[in-house]
């Protein structure tokens, strides 16, 4: 899922994006694989747990970078991050209360996939454009 053209010019953020795409890909694989749902559940659960924490770390680091370079869209970008973090939290809570339903998890995986592609492919690229316009600082 990761594409080289997603690079924005910050080593830390680029490696986190790479990791996020890899994890989402393995999440989708676990969700979409043939075989009994119960057998794939461990992988699904582990990835969800990882995502929940990693998204927080990544969003914080990315917002710190934006602050550091004086990125003008920080506030709006942070609000988008907050909304998605909340979505993940709500899904995790729902899973805790209702358990892992295969269809619900499939829907969630699709949501995370499309969100990540659009967000990294568009919003995060604007940070890269800004970095380049400033002469390529990190």
């Amino acid at each position: 899922m990761w594409k080289e053209h997603y690079r924005i010019g910050s080593e830390l953020i680029d490696s986190q994006h790479h990791e996020l795409f890899d994890r989402v890909a393995s999440f989708i694989r676990a969700v979409q694989e043939e075989g009994a749902w119960e057998e794939r559940l461990d992988q699904v659960q582990a990835t969800l747990e990882f995502m929940k924490e990693y998204v927080v770390i990544h969003f914080n680091d990315e917002e710190a970078l934006q602050r550091e370079i004086g990125y003008p869209g920080l506030e709006k970008h942070a609000a988008v991050h907050a909304a998605f973090r909340e979505e993940i939290r709500q899904f995790a809570q729902r899973v805790e209360e209702e358990g892992f339903d295969e269809e619900k998890v499939q829907e969630f995986a699709a949501r995370v996939m499309t969100w990540l592609i659009m967000h990294v492919g568009r919003e995060d690229q604007r940070i890269g454009e800004f970095i380049r316009s400033q002469g390529g600082q990190q």
């Binding site: 899922m1 989708i28 979409q32 295969e102 269809e103 499939q106 829907e107 995986a109 699709a110 592609i117």
Partner: peptide
């Protein structure tokens, strides 16, 4: 479309594929 996004082959219109399409239309 979903094969391209996910980077892995999709063969049926299941909940994952349908949700992904719904998201694309939504966006």
């Amino acid at each position: 479309m979903v094969t391209t996004m996910a980077g892995m082959p999709m063969s049926k219109l299941d909940a994952f594929v349908c949700s992904a399409l719904g998201e694309v239309a939504n966006i």
